[in-house]
Design a protein around this nucleic acid. Structure first.
Length: 640
RNA sequence: GCCGACGUAACUCAGUUGGUAGAGUAGCUGAUUUGUAAUCAGCCUGUCCUCGGUUCGAUUCCGGGCGUCGGCUCCA
């Protein structure tokens, strides 16, 4: 029999008979691998395990440990779920059912939205389908036949999907009594799914377009072993415990009130203290790095926003103007127009540039009710905004510098893992191609120079310029959009900005718009979730709880608090007539980093018994020792 | 905005198949003076989100609004 040569990822090769399937190849490596194999990559293409190899090829076997394997696994689950739904709710039309980062979803067009009980029924039917251990099988169909096939079944979404496909033939996957238009690949059979759970259902627009029908989406997760599902559910629980809305309440950091209005943050004293520390640090860093800090008003004449173009392209996020003496004034959704006006207040020379103006500017934006979310998405927030006015020949180094400064700031707060995106020219854009090319090139160069890996988001730039978005990753791997560095061709043009260059010519400056933390509100929310409320010492609202064991030690403890405060530390005494255990508990619950327990022994020796949050008793220290070590910890910001 | 769920004391939640409500925590008062995550006792707390409708009577049923949650969409 003819043979083919199969090459494995370790570069070893082995001959096989022509027509050998992926599963057989896996078996030849080890029976164990064959048991957990989900798919095979043949010359770069992920295929079913049943796929036969007909020519020399390099292959990789995918299991649940590989992203590709998981995708295949979850995608197969979406088919199983779709079968269950169609059997339980006859007449349901299928839309799409892809795998996602953790699990899958499938969108259905059903008469009535799914209830939680429905999900239970669907799970039950899915278990039956899994128990069948029905094999997945693939068949091709001529494109026109497939369209006719789905027309006859009134599967209008599938018809639309096929109509958008260019290929002459399309593939269908079959298992049990179910068929679905699908590129595949799939797991060998339904039985490989050992544990799954349907997480939630919700509305979702067909193809994400709010002008098209609303479908019902069901999300699910699944694993090849039950303990993996349990782990996932545990992780969900953990994430829930980190929820900044929950912690914000427990630690009395911030508050929302119906009476005040949705999406409007009330910063409670403890949260405000943290904010102040963040802002103080931010200010100092800016002053130390050639920024000037400015302040601008909260409202301005509508004409200013006409000139900036916001009333045109940003109208849907702006509140209605208010009437003042017959003139319309607009609550600000952005700070930029003010900085433009400030730039125009005098003439600038190339010697003055780059000019860097930073402002903690509070802006108000209309957000649709359904999108508000704790501190992460609000209607009034403070941007750590800045605008750089840059001479045309200095743009490369300015962007590079900005990026470095940005990363430096993020690192200071304990974030050293990022997802970075470079967004390029969208279809509708102002400015000429040469400018765009130059700007995109400059951003790209800055990223490369900084050695930061990034992805290009083609066409995702703002109409006024390309941008770099930086998402920070928190301690449990979720990413959050914070920093943005944006090129702006529009505003210097609209406000007719210029500077006098060294040759005496008036030139238009380039403008960079940047936010590092993004919104102080959101950044605070991210910090809370990142640290699960256990703030590093420099940020903790109360750094030390001084706990007298009995009332007669209150005076001594009062003096300890005073000394700590004089040394710049935030300390509080708990002088309630409670037992020490209760005081410790109260401080632990508030996640206070240090507790100084004080009894008669400590008071006599000018010392305290130091207890660390989450760790416990770490021994007796003199006040001076304890103070010095805390000050060192504050200075280090808890970073290595 | 759209789909769905939800809204009871400061917090977490129970309850009323329609007859205006309750537990723990917190708070207050008193007793206790305590050695590393809850001392004991007593007391207080509510337009049961809001506005309408049905009803003899609505916190409960129905509808509008507001808000929250999970998504869609959007974004700092």
């Amino acid at each position: 029999m003819a043979q083919v040569e199969i090459k494995f990822p370790d570069d070893s090769t082995k001959p096989f008979d022509v027509g050998t399937t992926g599963l057989e190849i896996a078996k030849s490596i080890s029976p164990r691998l064959a048991k957990v194999a989900l798919a095979i990559e043949i010359n770069g293409q992920v295929c079913d395990l049943g796929h036969a190899v007909t020519q020399d090829a390099s292959v990789r076997i995918f299991t649940f440990d590989d992203v590709e394997g998981r995708q295949v696994f979850w995608h197969s689950c979406s088919h199983i779920m779709a079968q269950a739904v169609q059997e339980l709710f006859p007449g349901t039309k299928l839309a799409i059912g892809p795998s996602i980062e953790e699990g899958w979803y499938y969108d259905f067009d059903v008469e009535k939205p799914f209830s939680p009980e429905d999900l239970g029924k669907i799970e039950k039917r899915m278990k039956e389908i899994i128990a069948e251990n029905a094999p997945f099988r693939c068949e091709s169909m001529n494109r026109d036949d497939a369209i006719k096939h789905y027309r006859d079944k009134s599967e209008t979404y599938k018809v639309e999907l096929i109509e958008d496909l260019k290929d002459e033939t399309v593939s269908f996957y079959y298992h049990s009594r179910f068929e679905d238009l699908c590129l595949g690949p799939h797991v060998p059979s339904t039985g490989v799914v050992k544990a799954f759970k349907l997480i939630s259902s919700s509305g979702a627009y067909w193809r994400g377009d709010e002008h098209r029908p609303m479908l019902q989406r069901i999300y699910g997760v699944a694993y090849p072993k039950k303990n993996l599902l349990d782990d996932y559910l545990k992780r969900l629980e953990e994430a829930k415990k980190r929820d900044h809305r929950v912690i914000g309440k427990q630690l009395e950091l911030f508050h929302f009130s119906d009476e005040v209005g949705a999406g409007l943050v009330l910063w409670m004293p403890r949260g405000a203290r943290i904010r102040q520390i963040i802002e103080d640090y931010w200010r100092q860093q800016h002053l130390d790095n050639d920024y000037d800090i400015v302040f601008t008003p909260h409202i301005a004449k509508q004409e200013l926003w006409d000139q900036s173009g916001h009333t045109g392209f940003y109208a849907e996020n702006m509140y209605k103007p208010i009437d003042i003496d017959g003139r319309k004034f607009q609550l600000k959704p952005m700070n930029c127009p003010f900085h433009m006006q400030m730039y125009k207040s005098r003439l600038w020379s190339y010697r003055d540039l780059p000019l860097r103006w930073a402002e903690l500017g509070t802006v108000y934006r209309y957000e649709r009710p359904g999108v508000l979310h704790g501190l992460m998405r609000v209607r009034g927030f403070t941007q750590d905004d800045a605008h750089h006015f840059v001479a045309r020949d200095r743009i490369d180094e300015e962007l590079s510098w900005t990026l470095d400064f940005c990363i430096h700031m993020l690192r200071s707060f304990g974030f050293d893992s990022y997802d970075i995106y470079l967004s390029t020219r969208p279809e509708k854009a102002i400015g000429d191609d040469a400018d765009w090319d130059k700007a995109e090139g400059a951003l790209r160069t800055a990223l490369k120079k900084a050695g930061l890996p990034f992805e290009v988001d083609p066409g995702e730039g703002v109409f006024y310029g390309p941008k770099i978005d930086i998402k920070i990753k928190d301690s449990i791997g979720r990413s959050w959009q914070c920093s943005t560095i944006q090129f702006d061709f529009s505003l210097p043009e609209r406000f007719d900005l210029h500077y006098t260059d060294r040759d005496g010519e008036r030139r238009r400056p380039y403008m960079v718009h940047r936010a590092l933390l993004g919104s102080i509100e959101r950044f605070f929310g991210v910090l809370i979730e990142h640290y699960a409320g256990n703030f590093p010492l420099w940020l903790a609202p109360v750094q030390v709880a001084v706990l007298p064991i009995s009332d007669d030690l209150n005076d001594y403890c009062g003096r300890v608090v005073k000394r700590l405060k004089e040394a710049g530390l935030r300390a509080e005494i708990d002088d309630r007539s409670e037992k020490i255990g209760a005081k410790i508990r109260a401080a632990e619950i508030m996640k206070t980093p240090y507790m100084f327990v004080v009894g008669a022994r400590e008071a006599e020796a000018d010392s305290v018994s130091v207890r660390k949050h989450g760790t416990g008793d770490i021994g007796v220290k003199t006040i001076d020792e304890a103070l010095a070590s805390l000050q060192a910890e504050v200075a280090s910001k808890g970073l290595e």
